[in-house]
Design a protein around this nucleic acid. Structure first.
Length: 570
RNA sequence: GCGCUCGUAGCUCAGUGGAUAGAGCACCGGCCUCCGGAGCCGGGUGUCGGAGGUUCGAAUCCUCUCGAGCGCGCCA
C-alpha cells in the first residue's frame, strides 16, 4: 500500500522518461495546503523544464481520476487534496489483511541472521550501560525476525580469565550454597585481595589466582569443572535479570572452547606470509597491523600471546569469530560498546588478511549519569536490577490506585509490563551512536515521550473495542473517514512499512520508538477530535472503530519490535 | 598528540538535500453532566557549537575550527 504510487502512475504516463523514484512525494507541510505534496525538482530536471513550469504542466495536463479532489501548484511544489475515503479503505483493509505482520516487507524471507550481543563478564551483574547492548541487540533480533529472517542469537560467555580464577579460588568448597549475589560479593573481596593498591592485598592469593588460570588453560579437568560451576552460576544470575526484560538467547558460546583452536594457526600463518607478525623482545607474539592496512601509529600493534605463551582475549575472539562466520548466515551482526571500535577494526584487519569473512559491528555509545553526588562517569554505576525494581515500584503505586477493581495478581502483572516498557523505551528511543544521559526521574516517568504513554493508547483502544464488540472486517467503499485528524492518523499508519524497512537496513531501532510515539500522539488527537462510540451515525461509528482497530494493530506491532507489550488495561 | 562519535529550545531528544526546524519535560492559561485526564487544546523559547565551501536550495554533504564522550602493546 503506497499512497504515492497512485499519484505517480498518471504523471509517468503523461511524461516520458520518468521513473517513480524521480517523483519526490511527501506529506504537505500543512493540511490546509494539501494532503500530499510533490517536489518537482528532480523530475523537472529530467524532462528539461524549470520546476515551477513543470509543476504547472502537471496540474494542467495530468488526469488523476477519482483519487484526487484538487491539485494546485505552489511554485516548484504541487499540493494534492486526496479522495481521503478511497485511500482510507485501502489503508485500513491493508492493516486488517496483514494483521500481526503489518509493517513487514518480508525482505529477509528465506534468509538467516546470526547476532551476538551482551556478553557480560560473569563476575558482574548487568548494569544499565551494558543493558543498552542487550536491549538493542534484542530489538534487532525482533526487527529481523519480523522481516522474515531466521535469527540465531548468540551469547559469548567469557568463562576464562583472571577474574574467574580469583573467584574459583575465593569460593572454593562453598559453591554449592552460594547465590549469584554471594558470588558478586565474593568477587569484590577477591579482587581487592589481588590488588596491590588495596590494604587487603595478598600476594600469595594473587599468584594462586594466576596459577589457577594457567591450570585451567592447560586443560586440568578438575579445575575446569570448578570454572564451569562458577561461570554457570553467574550466567544464570545474569540471564535471570535480562529475562525480566524479555531478552533471551539461543546459543551460549564459551570462550574456553577457543583456547587452542586450529584456526588460530591458520591466522598466524597468513600473517607470517605478509610479514605482519613477530615475536618481540619479551617473547610476545605481536601483529603489526601497519603491514595489513592500518594507517597510523596508534593501535598499530595487537598482541596475540603473552610472553608466557598464554593467549590474549583478542586471539581467542578471532577463533570465535571464524567459528561464528563458518555457520554461513546471510547477515552476521555483533553489538559492541563504542569502546570496542578500534578493537573490532583490528580484528577485522587480521581476518581480512587471513582471507576470512568479517561480521558487521554495531556500536552504541555509553550511558552517562547526570552529574550528581554518587555518579561514576558511566551508566555502569546503576544496576539494571535496581532500575527495574524502582520502575516496577512506581508503576505499582499508580496501578493500585487506578485499577483498584482488579486482583492483586493482575495489578502486579500490569505494573511489571509498564515498568519494562518505561525502561526499554527510555533507552531504545535514543539513537545508538549518541550517548544517553541517564536520569532516574525522566527514565522512570510515565508521561510524555514514554513507553507507558504509547501503552496507554493501546489500553484505551482496547477499552473501546470491548464496549463495541465484534468489529466488522469488511470496509465500506465509501468509508466516511475524511476529517483532518482521521487523515493524519491514517496517512501515518500507511508509512509504517517504510519506517520498519528503513530501521532494519540502518540497524536503527530508535526509529521504531519515534514512530510509535507519533502514532500514539496522532491517535489521541483523533480521539479527542472525533467521537467514536458516540459518533453521529452508525456508519461513522463503524468506520472510526475500524480505524481504532487498525491503529491498535500498528501500535502492537511497533511495540513488539521494541520488546514492549500492548495492554488491555492499565 | 592521533583516530572514531556526538554538538539542534533552559533540560532530554526527533529531524541524514526541499516550503515557516519539531516533540517531551519544566513554566502559564483553558478542558472530565461524551467513548479511560498516564490525556487534549492554547501560550514562547532557537547565532541548528563557530567559520568557510558545494547546491536553485544545507541542521543534513565537504573542509577547517572549538567543545564533549570513547579509544590508542601483554584487561576482557
Amino acid at each position: 500500500m503506497n499512497l504515492y504510487s497512485v499519484l505517480a502512475a498518471p504523471i509517468m504516463q503523461q511524461f516520458d522518461g520518468l521513473v517513480e523514484s524521480d517523483l519526490d512525494f511527501a506529506p504537505s507541510p500543512k493540511l490546509e495546503v494539501g494532503d500530499v505534496a510533490l517536489r518537482t525538482f528532480i523530475a523537472a530536471k529530467k524532462v528539461g523544464m524549470a520546476p515551477p513550469q513543470f509543476a504547472q504542466a502537471i496540474v494542467e495536463q495530468v488526469d488523476f481520476g477519482t483519487s484526487v479532489i484538487e491539485v494546485k501548484a505552489a511554485g516548484p511544489y504541487i499540493n494534492f487534496k486526496l479522495n481521503r475515503s478511497q485511500f482510507a479503505k485501502s489503508i485500513v483493509s491493508t492493516v486488517f489483511d496483514q494483521g500481526d505482520s503489518f509493517g513487514s516487507s518480508q525482505g529477509g524471507a528465506g534468509q538467516t541472521m546470526l547476532i551476538e550481543h551482551t556478553s557480560i563478564n560473569p563476575n558482574a551483574s548487568p548494569h544499565v550501560g551494558r543493558a543498552r547492548n542487550a536491549m538493542y541487540g534484542d530489538s534487532l533480533v525482533r526487527l529481523f525476525r519480523f522481516d522474515g529472517y531466521d535469527v540465531d542469537v548468540h551469547y559469548y560467555v567469557n568463562d576464562i580469565g583472571r577474574q574467574i580464577g580469583l573467584l574459583v579460588l575465593d569460593t572454593e568448597g562453598q559453591l554449592d550454597e552460594l547465590t549469584f549475589d554471594d558470588v558478586l560479593e565474593a568477587y569484590v573481596k577477591a579482587n581487592d585481595r589481588a590488588n596491590p593498591e588495596k590494604p587487603e592485598y595478598d600476594a600469595d592469593f594473587e599468584a594462586a589466582g594466576y596459577e589457577m588460570l594457567a591450570k585451567m588453560e592447560k586443560g586440568d579437568p578438575e579445575i575446569a569443572a570448578k570454572f564451569t560451576q562458577v561461570t554457570d552460576l553467574c550466567l544464570a544470575g545474569q540471564l535471570a535479570v535480562l529475562a525480566r526484560l524479555g531478552i533471551e538467547y539461543d546459543c551460549f558460546d564459551k570462550e574456553s572452547k577457543y583456547l587452542d583452536d586450529p584456526s588460530l594457526d591458520e591466522i598466524v600463518k597468513a600473517l607470517e606470509a605478509k610479514k605482519a607478525v613477530f615475536t618481540d623482545e619479551d617473547n610476545r607474539l605481536v601483529v603489526d597491523l601497519s603491514k595489513i592496512g592500518h594507517d597510523r601509529d596508534e593501535g598499530r600493534y595487537f598482541v596475540l600471546r603473552r610472553g608466557n605463551g598464554s593467549s590474549m582475549y583478542g586471539f581467542r575472539d578471532l577463533a570465535y569469530t571464524i567459528d561464528k562466520m563458518s555457520k554461513g548466515a546471510d547477515v552476521n551482526l555483533q553489538v559492541f560498546g563504542e569502546d570496542h571500535k578500534l578493537y573490532a577494526e583490528q580484528l577485522e584487519l587480521i581476518l581480512k588478511a587471513a582471507n576470512k569473512p568479517v561480521p558487521e559491528s554495531i556500536y552504541y555509545a555509553y550511558i552517562l549519569l547526570k552529574e550528581g553526588k554518587m555518579s561514576t562517569r558511566s551508566g555502569e554505576g546503576v544496576l539494571l536490577e535496581d532500575f527495574l525494581d524502582q520502575a516496577a515500584e512506581r508503576a505499582q503505586v499508580k496501578i493500585d490506585e487506578q485499577c483498584a477493581d482488579m486482583s492483586e495478581e493482575e495489578r502486579k502483572e500490569i505494573a511489571r509490563k509498564i515498568s519494562i516498557s518505561a525502561v526499554r523505551f527510555s533507552i531504545l528511543r535514543v539513537n545508538p551512536n549518541k550517548s544517553v544521559i541517564f536520569d532516574w526521574e525522566s527514565s522512570l516517568s510515565f508521561s510524555g515521550d514514554t513507553g507507558p504513554y504509547v501503552q496507554y493508547s493501546t489500553a484505551r483502544i482496547n477499552s473501546m473495542l470491548r464496549k463495541f464488540g465484534e468489529v466488522p472486517t469488511e470496509i465500506a467503499d465509501d468509508i466516511p473517514l475524511t476529517a483532518d485528524a482521521e487523515w493524519a492518523l491514517m496517512a501515518h499508519l500507511a508509512t509504517f512499512t517504510d519506517v520498519v524497512a528503513q530501521a532494519t537496513s540502518s540497524r536503527n531501532v530508535a526509529a521504531i520508538g519515534v514512530y510509535a510515539l507519533e502514532t500514539a500522539r496522532l491517535f489521541t488527537s483523533f480521539y479527542h477530535d472525533c467521537p467514536v462510540l458516540v459518533a453521529e451515525t452508525e456508519e461513522l461509528k463503524v468506520a472510526r472503530v475500524q480505524l481504532c482497530k487498525a491503529t491498535l494493530q500498528t501500535l502492537t506491532n511497533a511495540l513488539n519490535l521494541l520488546g514492549i507489550e500492548a495492554l488491555e488495561r492499565m
